[in-house]
């Protein structure tokens, strides 16, 4: 009896309730990071509305924190767009990998579904697709719950941040550096990452001293990527 039930459950697609259960840890982790983003935005001189608007329209944590770190007046629009494009380039690979698994999705669901793609939703959907049919219900449960939470926490953090005062006295200006070190640790893949990180760090610091911002981002990023290319074994073209 219970065996038939299990088989039946496996044969049907993943449900929204399962999606909500799977995304819950990521939602809890999203709350303090969203509050931090809002508070740091206001510390940088953005208004509460501008901080919230960025979370609504961009909705990509890493790129948003990087933008704040690079933010100066006058606003370097091109440098910000470029840094965002580079940091989010990973979405292209995630989308390409998910596309064949979106078989049950209508065109509108694909378009909307792609627009709420995040690292967390991607990882859960890939895990789900290993065993079951990926359904729109499951995808939107894991992917569409994060944007409203991220936006809400940004507004709340920005509003609270306007009472905090001078960010440097609290060491808040260093929060970016610490956060990014933590994010890179999460991306660690051993030797390859070590080479990338060292080359990027040294090149960026030198470019910052010699050329000034915002050139250090492009210089460091490309040097790190080139180092990874050179360090990887070349692909054998013949058997």
């Amino acid at each position: 009896m219970s065996r038939t039930l299990v088989l039946e459950r496996e044969a049907t697609g993943a449900t929204a309730a399962e999606g909500l259960r799977d995304i819950l840890p990521a939602m809890i982790a999203c709350i303090p990071i969203g509050l931090l983003f809002g508070a740091l935005s206001v510390g940088k001189g953005l208004s509460v509305l501008e901080a919230g608007l960025m979370s609504i329209l961009v909705f990509a944590g890493g790129a948003q924190f990087a933008a704040l770190e690079l933010w100066t007046w006058p606003v370097p629009v091109l440098a910000l767009a470029f840094s965002t494009l580079l940091i989010n380039a990973r979405h292209v690979l995630m989308g390409a990998s998910l596309a064949p698994k979106f078989g049950e999705f209508s065109l509108f669901q694909r378009l909307l579904g792609a627009s709420v793609l995040t690292d967390e939703a991607w990882a859960l959907a890939e895990r789900c697709a290993l065993r079951r049919q990926l359904t729109p219900a499951y995808w939107f449960a894991v992917a569409a719950t994060l944007p409203p939470l991220w936006v809400g926490c940004t507004f709340l953090g920005a509003w609270l941040g306007s009472f905090l005062g001078e960010p440097r006295a609290l060491g808040a200006d260093f929060a970016f550096t610490a956060l990014f070190i933590g994010l890179v640790a999460g991306l660690w893949r051993g030797r390859d990452t070590a080479i990338t990180v060292i080359v990027s760090a040294v090149t960026s610091a030198l470019a910052y001293v010699w050329l000034g911002p915002p050139w250090h981002v492009a210089a460091g990023a490309f040097a790190g990527i080139a180092a990874a290319w050179c360090a990887a074994p070349p692909e054998r073209s013949s058997p």
């Binding site: 890493g62 990087a66 770190e69 690079l70 840094s83 580079l86 940091i87 380039a89 990973r90 200006d173 260093f174 970016f176 550096t177 990014f180 070190i181 994010l183 890179v184 991306l187 893949r189 390859d192 990452t193 990338t196 990180v197 990027s200 760090a201 040294v202 090149t203 960026s204 610091a205 910052y208 001293v209 911002p213 250090h216 981002v217 492009a218 210089a219 460091g220 990023a221 490309f222 040097a223 790190g224 990527i225 180092a227 990874a228 290319w229």
Partner: peptide, 16 residues
């Protein structure tokens, strides 16, 4: 694969 760590590190290297 190197793009995310390379960019994140390049952004914070001057501050660090």
């Amino acid at each position: 694969d190197a793009i995310p760590p390379a960019v994140l590190v390049a952004v914070i290297a001057p501050s660090a």
